[in-house]
Amino acid sequence: MTKDQETESGSYRNKYDEVEKVQIFEQEFMPHIDSMYNFAYRLTFEEDESKDLVQDTYLKAFRFINSFERGTNAKAWLFRILKNSFINDFRKKSKQPSKVDYQEVENYYNSDDVDEKNTVDLRVETLKDMMGDEVTNALNALAVDFRTVIILCDLEGFTYEEMAKILDIPIGTVRSRLHRARNLLKEKLSSYAQSMGYK
């Protein structure tokens, strides 16, 4: 039986030999370690936790390497593992907002969709003057689910379809969450601008 036949029959056990595994790991997984570390840092805000999270993710990726299809999007595959590890192993430990908090935020913005545009007064010129720390703080102030979609879309350039897979949510939810996340970010940036006396 060839390797391909094994894959088709659903058995991943011996899909790649040891040499191929290490090759895939080096060529397809390791090049994304910068993005992975920054994603972890933006979720946990801590160096040690980020290191643990990234290491866990890479070790898991290697352990389950037979379920990775060569030539498919390794970055999205790795991001999905990291996000799941964060939710299952890391979020429990820390005092991240629970699902309930998030739901409240989402409901609030659902009901407010019509008026929210008018509440933010932010100018392009103001944004140009902002410093890195101010922008970073505004992003970090968002609840983790909103922060995540901004990171994935605006910083990492994933498509909506890739985001849907990484986050295990429908594309429609990706769209609406991103829309709300951007409005929330605008509000944060606007209040930063005001407190810094930009206007």
Partner: peptide, 14 residues
Amino acid sequence: IRELLRSKVNKHQV
């Protein structure tokens, strides 16, 4: 805002 995020959000070295 997209430009701002890409150019100014702090990046960490692995």
